[in-house]
């Protein structure tokens, strides 16, 4: 019951964030419902999805990594495993809630899909129109890329905390790193989201799936590699 209440609270919070994000980011007369989803991806990832993820990760750390919990665990590996499980749980929960929030706000636009018109935001940004939108592909890509962003950003913060003991540093480094990488157009980070460009210049499976999965495996390994010494 408590978890459900927390999930509902996060959902409403995300709805408010998505609303403001799309309200300030979209020219209403050109925008459609699908644009709301796009607005939480692409360049917006570093100041939207990443901060939300690391803050939720911070709350977890504050609540679950206290000395009462720690001394009751069998060993250090079990603690790292707990952290990983939490990251993956929050990964799909945040992804689903963000999708639901975007869907909720998208309904407010009335016009769900307008990328086949020259008055659309899509045309404004790509100088082209899209006659056929594969909605299943769109939703699938949105869910996959959001999940990867949530998991990778949280993993990065937790790995930095695991190695240095400093969570705030992990948060700042992660948000900063994503900001720099996305602004400089690193292929995976720039293109994996449901960004307008993806429809005119498809990207490879390597950047879409294999690279993020490899990154996740490496980050998980870094946690197992280091035996955390102090819980201060």
């Amino acid at each position: 019951m408590k978890k459900l209440k927390t999930i509902i609270k996060i959902y409403f919070l995300l709805c408010i964030l998505v609303f403001f994000q799309s309200f300030f980011g979209l020219k209403k007369k050109y925008a459609c419902g699908i644009d709301v989803f796009v607005r939480t991806q692409g360049l917006a990832v570093w100041y939207f999805i990443v901060p939300i993820s690391v803050i939720i990760g911070f709350v977890f750390l504050k609540n679950e990594m206290n000395y009462n919990m720690i001394v009751r665990k069998k060993n250090i590996k079990e603690i790292w495993l707990d952290i990983l499980l939490n990251i993956f749980h929050s990964g799909y929960i945040i992804t689903f809630l963000l999708f639901l929030s975007c869907e909720t706000i998208a309904v407010l636009y009335g016009n769900f899909y307008k990328w086949d018109e020259t008055t659309s935001l899509f045309y404004m940004l790509t100088r082209g129109t899209l006659n056929y939108l594969n909605l299943k592909f769109f939703i699938f890509m949105y869910l996959v890329s959001t999940f990867f962003y949530v998991v990778i950003s949280q993993l990065l913060v937790q790995v930095i905390w695991w190695w240095t003991g400093n969570y705030v540093m992990g948060m700042l480094v992660t948000i900063g790193l994503f900001a720099v990488l996305i602004r400089n157009g690193l292929p995976w980070l720039m293109r994996s989201g449901v960004y307008y460009d993806i429809w005119t210049a498809p990207i490879s499976n390597f950047y879409q799936f294999i690279f993020p999965i490899l990154l996740i495996v490496v980050l998980i390994g870094l946690g197992y590699l280091k035996r955390k010494r102090d819980f201060l």
């Binding site: 408590k2 000395y67 720690i70 001394v71």
Partner: peptide, 28 residues
């Protein structure tokens, strides 16, 4: 990693704010 049977109270008690006392102990 940790003693097999230990109970500790250090400086500030560490519990979840939104849980009752019983729920906090149950969680542990």
């Amino acid at each position: 990693s940790f003693p097999e049977s230990i109970g500790i109270l250090l400086e500030n008690p560490a519990f979840l704010d939104n849980y009752t006392g019983y729920a906090n102990l149950k969680l542990l």
